[in-house]
Design a binder for these strands. Structure first.
Lengths: 345, 345
DNA sequence: CTGTTAGCGCATTCAA
DNA sequence: TTGAATGCGCTAACAG
């Protein structure tokens, strides 16, 4: 049987309370006593039973998630994952509140952060928009010792505790690499459609994509970025116009959302087979387009992983515990029609 | 505060023991009493605290992992993940033993399964070789109510409880799809290097690969399969010979292990830039080859996920609990040099 | 500075 | 068929 606090108390010749004190390094133990206990811990090879500890503590973690509103399928999927986490909250001892704000709206986001602050949660997870007022709000939360994790889109320089999302520069590079190889020797320019240059993730993807195209596919012309605000209607209009003025277009990299518009424009123009399209995020629409062949490859960040990671990190930070960063790294998935996970998964 | 057994006992007007009986549907409760309790559970919205339950039970899960011996980096990585799980065994209430057997050796594997059986574990995870004696041994374990999970390579028809591994047909298809697109319009045949046709995963990958090449890249010639026994030295020899007799080779799909041999042969022949190489499993060697460009794409199954999934399933099956199969699905990762996770991760 | 004691939510004797 | 009592491994008052 593995050793318990009782065993180490006996071995060290002290009481349970003392053992508990050194285990949770609380004050009020003489150095000699502490050493005795530590030695007992070492010789017996004691490892604390976290489940039992949590049971005894009865601690719970009030958390706030701030997510963008709107039709964006990825964000709705993200919200669904947060709600799934709420359903598990009994078992995970969390108490989660969701706050919804308009997309790409820095003042509204800053206001939501202040609202979150008033709830005095243990931690806040936020899909960030890069703006001074948002940075400022995050700093205020940190001053109140509220843990902050940026989700999906980061906010460097804000002092947030952690970023739960993918390396978007690498994502852009990956898209560039696939695009260059898939197009191969064919002629024609490549277009880039983004949502907004106000969010860090989109800027990073663009940077990565351009870097690879310059390094490895130097002859290829990259057209100026189109900003579609992650809005399918707008994206469709802009891409439609693009297709008209670029009869020789070889590829489109859609690094934001609104892919329904992209797909519609390509199919209306009858160019879905000749243009290599690479987009982000696996949603019901993008999935269908991948299967049909309109989209050639999809880069994805697993929203479920991101939410669960954010919660783990928030809890750890709230307890002042270190985070095993290797374990919290979110991978960039590449999906072709052949390695698509089953529906619903 | 969420309701506890006490609350539902009070609500139903019975004792703790009775509540416990209906909760774990044990006999010895009148139907009326049972109904009262069930109603209380429903109205209070009770959910059992699994951690507390486990604490009270003090149950632990003796498990056996049977892994192939040898230099195969992927398998050694797998073993490292099992050892990592052993390190967590205190917290997870598992007690894991590793059994090592020669690779591709059905009699030895069958013997190991019988050895595992004598330990009377709650469950066994095994990297399967497809052979009647192995199937038979697995059936015996099942008869002794020992849960069995196949790991990495499956054993259909054996009655194993679960397969913790990727869909290898889909993996082969993915490789085919990438191969066809990366080669594009270039001339030349494509070769396939396998480990052994005795293991299901290799056979499945081959099937998927051939299917896609036939469906989508019909003009491309696929050479007969080379079996390298996952042995780098043998692979190097065989691929070396292949390169000599096929001066126009356009691509190589290595669906097994021994990639050190593949890389060495390509580089010695100076063909690493002109031949598109796609291989499996991210190891230090394959990673280096991907970065240098000798390997163009790597398909990967995350050994850590597989091991953790196997353990979860084994515990669930041992307790007679259902498995949420969607959650246990192992994804096929595609790595290019651009989306490689950081070292060590 | 150290020890005693009473739970956390649940499972399990042993009596009744 | 039911209930009272005890303990799992740990934390947290409260005493000393």
């Amino acid at each position: 049987m593995r050793p318990t606090v009782h065993d180490i108390a006996a071995e060290a010749g002290v009481s349970l309370a003392t053992v508990d004190r050194v285990l949770n390094n609380r004050p009020g133990v003489r150095t000699v006593t502490r050493h005795k206990v530590e030695r007992a811990i070492a010789t017996l090879g004691y490892v604390r039973d976290v489940a039992a500890a949590n049971l005894a503590k009865g601690r719970s973690y009030p958390l706030v998630f701030i997510l963008p509103a709107g039709e964006n399928s990825f964000m709705r999927g993200l919200e669904a994952e947060v709600r799934a986490a709420m359903a598990r909250s009994a078992a995970e001892r969390t108490d989660i509140t969701i706050l919804s704000v308009p997309a790409f709206d820095a003042p509204a986001l800053a206001a939501a952060l202040m609202e979150a602050r008033e709830r005095r949660p243990a931690g806040v997870a936020v899909v960030a928009v890069e703006a001074p007022e948002v940075t400022e709000a995050v700093k205020r939360l940190r001053e109140d010792r509220i843990a902050v994790v940026t989700l999906v889109s980061d906010l460097p320089g804000s002092g947030r505790d952690h970023f739960a999302g993918v390396d978007n520069i690498a994502a852009g590079r990956t898209a560039g690499s696939l695009m260059g190889r898939f197009i191969g020797g064919r002629e024609g320019a490549v277009a880039v459609v983004a949502g907004s240059m106000l969010v860090r993730d989109h800027r990073d993807r663009l940077e990565g994509f351009r870097a690879v195209m310059t390094e490895d596919f130097a002859g290829r012309c990259i057209l100026p970025v189109i900003e579609g605000q992650d809005n399918p209607t707008l994206v469709e209009k802009l891409v439609g116009a693009l297709l008209e003025r670029q009869p020789d277009l070889a590829g489109i990299y859609s690094l934001g959302a609104g892919n329904r518009g992209l797909v519609a424009a390509l199919e209306k123009a009858g160019r879905e087979k000749t243009i290599c399209a690479i987009a982000h995020e696996l949603t019901p629409h993008s999935r269908a387009a991948l299967v049909s062949g309109t989209i050639d490859a999809l880069l994805n960040q697993n929203a479920g992983h991101e939410v669960r990671s954010a919660i783990r990190v928030l809890k750890a930070k709230a307890d002042g515990l270190p985070v095993i960063s290797a374990q919290e790294r979110i991978r960039i998935d590449i999906f072709l029609k052949d390695n698509l996970p089953l529906e619903q998964a």
